[in-house]
Design a protein around this nucleic acid. Structure first.
Length: 792
DNA sequence: AGCACGCCGACT
DNA sequence: GTCGGCGTGCTC
């Protein structure tokens, strides 16, 4: 009889799936079914990727312990999508598959250590390890953290002497069940004060109440409830409780009217949706041109046709408007998925989608894998946003995954943006994507007037480069008229660096090769990459000089400058520092929206998603932030940010004004952003990408090697680069190795090898070279980034 | 990734 | 001599 073998992808960073034998005691698992298998000492929930023809030579396949899904949890399409992702991005198949399963659906067992039940053996003998285990079993990893060292060998010895027991445990991680009290006998009488009160409370609540709620009201009611249950007056039911993410109230359920142009585009897209086959479309429409309404109409049409819809947004926190509007429009059939949800909330939303209770999904990046079936529409709003790129393994780009999913599902994919990525626009021009443009703004609002202020001239004339005279004048005018202003500076903190005037030392991060940013008016210094934080020194740490100087400015400093010039103005700051405090971001934005604030100072967060009708002035403090970064996308990012923020001015009836302060007023990113001329920007940027061989003119694959040993990492990178060069044969070029722009991050030195050329050839070469390295089965210490977005 | 194994210097 | 710190290789 033919051996029953299956190939199983496991949640470990290994290049290939493993082969297991299916014993007669378990049913044959289909592709996509989850199975419990042993791996080394551990157990894992993995995913069957297909039958295997033979076990790898000399290896006896182990037995599948259990088949968890008689029928796969997710569609074959999603399993195919994960397989494609693993191959395209050179990711571990198990880690790619994990994305399409519910949270904790695919995972490894945890090694738990507990004290052995030894009669009378309750003494710790002064061993801190035994003492730590006294209160209860602990995972081995927690034990290591608590004891500050690797306890493995000690634990092993304690096991041999019979003091502790090691177990492999896989926690369920599932639904939350809440006990509910049900009035079983409507005529029941209480036999005491508490019982009477409980019954009364239950009747008040319509005969059904969650037990925790009841007990919270009065702790003593717990006993009374028990007695009522014993007498059969009340029944206890375990009910699944949905952990529902918070959705802000508001938003309108009514469809908006579309202008002629919008209606034509909506009509054309609807026709394509109704074909029920794959097509990708770029919806290029200026801010405020009504893209959201078009998305919603398409989603409604998809629902009518019995299919679901997926709407991706770059960051949920910055688009509360869209979530609110979708909730109002689609009601209970909306699910919201994003990283701020608790694991429980995510789990429940996942199952609501999987069970078909939710058919319209609004979510960030990872929502592209939501188990909507069948799927008719995928929308990627603000498709140019870098937030769609996952920056750790598997390093996928949600926009590109969405296009592939659309292809596999036979769904319509709509990529929306006011400033499309250079890649998507090129695809549209090449005919790969259908191209739709929306030129008119809703209510026929005029585009704002844009003025560029040369900061160099202001400095030469002895003026303040943060708030230049034209900006001060414009701000003063708004304050006088009761209008609002936004001030953008894409750099948080107070000062960009702390310098010693005597020896020139610059305060830098102990873990990363970057200078520390000064926060809280000079009181603290912080690393924006690893989070290192400390009190600012008062004397120079290297020469003990007493004269320290702050240079460069961030949003905190701008706030201070505004306070100094306009003491009476109501000003607040919005940036990542504020967003860290729960709810603070929403409160500040809401206050600004209500008109309780005059000026909002912030990073790019203020440029996105919101509609502030009273804003008539946008000031960009330093339009060149970002242009200096060693990144081939810096011009594109600057153009997008400036265009976006300029669009915030004059969204009400009054026309708007934009002031861009810059040291490089002649840079094309600024010029074309001012003119709101996307097409010309694209032409100019494409020229640069073509000459330099950057995307979309050529594909990129970046390898980053990491190690605490700087020399070793360079040596290793050299060897890899050499082997890649041998194999290139004109299919790609190899740049480097070189230390990455962020040469050291979190105590690790980083060395990169950048490949430019044909994606497929590069991928194959990298796979081959990496699998031939010593211990070439795992990705340890190396990051493979296919289609990198950032080269930092 | 986790875990085992094996090599090494340091302490009773 | 054992302990425990770290580097390397393996897991179907």
């Amino acid at each position: 009889m033919q051996a029953r073998l299956v190939s199983v992808a496991l949640p470990v960073p290994l290049l290939t799936p493993f082969t297991y034998r299916v014993p007669p005691s378990v049913p044959w698992p289909e592709r996509g079914a989850r199975v419990l298998v042993p791996l080394g000492r551990r157990r894992m929930i993995g995913v069957v990727v297909g039958p295997a023809t033979a076990a790898p030579a000399e290896l006896e396949a182990k037995d599948v312990l259990d088949v968890l899904d008689p029928v796969p949890l997710v569609s074959g399409t999603l399993v195919d999508l994960a397989a494609w992702l693993a191959a395209y991005y050179l990711a571990a198949p198990g880690e790619a598959l994990r994305l399409v399963f519910p949270p904790s659906g695919v995972k490894a067992s945890r090694t738990m250590v507990r004290l052995a039940d030894v009669a009378g053996g309750s003494s710790d003998e002064g061993d801190p390890l035994l003492a730590a285990l006294r209160p209860g079993p602990l995972p081995l990893s927690t034990l290591a953290r608590r004891l500050g060292s690797d306890p493995a060998s000690r634990v092993l010895r304690l096991r041999e002497s019979g003091r502790v027991v090691i177990e492999q445990r896989i926690e369920a991680g599932g639904f939350r069940e809440v006990r509910h009290a049900l009035l079983a006998d409507p005529a029941a009488q209480g036999r005491g004060r508490a019982q009477v009160a409980v019954l009364e409370r239950l009747r008040e609540a319509g005969g059904r109440l969650a037990v925790p709620e009841l007990v919270r009201e009065r702790a003593s009611w717990r006993g009374a409830l028990d007695r009522l249950v014993e007498r059969g007056a009340v029944r206890i039911n375990r009910e699944r409780e949905r952990r529902r993410p918070d959705v802000l109230p508001g938003g309108t359920s009514e469809a908006l009217c579309l202008s002629g142009e919008q209606a034509r585009v909506a009509e054309a897209l609807t026709t394509r949706l109704e074909r029920g086959s794959f097509e990708a479309c770029l919806l290029h429409g200026v801010t405020g041109s009504g893209k959201t309404e078009i998305y919603f109409r398409l989603a409604e049409r998809a629902l009518e046709r019995g299919r679901g819809a997926l709407v991706l947004v770059p960051e949920i926190a910055l688009t509360p408007f869209l979530v609110r509007a979708a909730t109002a429009r689609f009601g209970a059939t909306v699910a919201v998925l994003h990283s701020d949800l608790s694991e429980g909330e995510r789990h429940d939303e996942w199952w609501r989608i999987r069970d078909g209770a939710a058919r319209v999904v609004i979510g960030a990046r990872s929502a592209v894998f939501a188990p909507v079936a069948p799927l008719g529409l995928l929308v990627v709003d603000e498709e140019h946003e870098a937030a769609y790129k996952q920056e750790d393994s598997p390093r996928y780009h949600a926009r590109d995954v969405a296009v592939m999913r659309g292809k596999l599902e036979g769904a319509l994919v709509v990529l929306g943006s006011a400033t499309p990525s250079v890649e998507s626009y090129a695809n549209a021009l090449a005919g790969k994507y259908a191209h739709f443009e929306l030129h008119e703004r809703v209510l026929d609002r005029a585009l704002p007037r844009v003025e560029i202020v040369d900061r160099r001239e202001v400095l030469r004339a002895g003026g303040d480069p943060i708030l230049t005279p034209p900006l001060v004048e414009a701000l003063g005018a708004r304050l006088g008229r009761g209008e609002q202003a936004l001030l953008l500076l894409n750099r948080r903190g107070y000062a960009t660096s702390l310098l010693c005037r005597e020896c020139g030392m610059q305060a830098s991060c102990p873990n990363c090769s970057v200078s520390l940013t000064v926060h809280r008016a000079g009181a603290t210094t912080e690393c924006h990459y690893c989070g290192f934080e400390s009190r600012s020194p008062t004397t120079c740490p290297s020469c003990h000089g007493a004269y320290l100087k702050l240079t460069g400015h961030g949003t905190e400093k701008v706030l201070e400058a505004v306070h100094a010039v306009f003491p009476g103005a109501r000003v607040e700051r919005v940036d990542r520092d504020l967003a860290r405090r729960r709810g603070a971001l929403g409160r500040t934005l809401a206050a600004f929206e209500r008109g309780d604030l005059d000026i909002l100072v912030g990073t790019q967060m203020i440029a996105k998603g919101h509609d502030f009708p009273r804003v008539t002035l946008v000031g960009v403090i330093d339009a060149d932030v970002g242009l200096g970064l060693p990144d081939f996308r810096s011009a594109e990012r600057t153009f997008q940010l400036l265009t976006q923020v300029a669009g915030r001015a004059g969204r009400g009836e009054r026309s708007g004004e934009v002031i861009l302060q810059s040291h490089r007023p002649d840079h094309y990113a600024l010029g074309f952003a001012c003119a709101q001329d996307y097409a010309s920007f694209f032409e100019r940027e494409m020229e640069f990408r073509r000459t330099m061989g950057y995307p979309p003119a050529s594909a990129l694959l970046n390898l980053v090697l990491r190690s605490t040993d700087a020399e070793a990492v360079l040596r290793d990178a050299r060897a890899i680069a050499a082997r890649l060069r041998e194999r290139a044969r004109g299919g790609y070029r190899v740049l480097g190795p070189a230390f990455a722009p962020l040469a050291r991050l979190r105590r690790e030195h980083r060395c990169q090898v950048l490949l430019k050329g044909r994606r497929k050839t590069m991928r194959e070469a990298v796979r081959e070279v990496l699998s031939q390295r010593r211990g070439g089965v795992s990705w340890r210490g190396i990051t493979v980034d296919v289609d990198p977005v950032s080269l930092m």
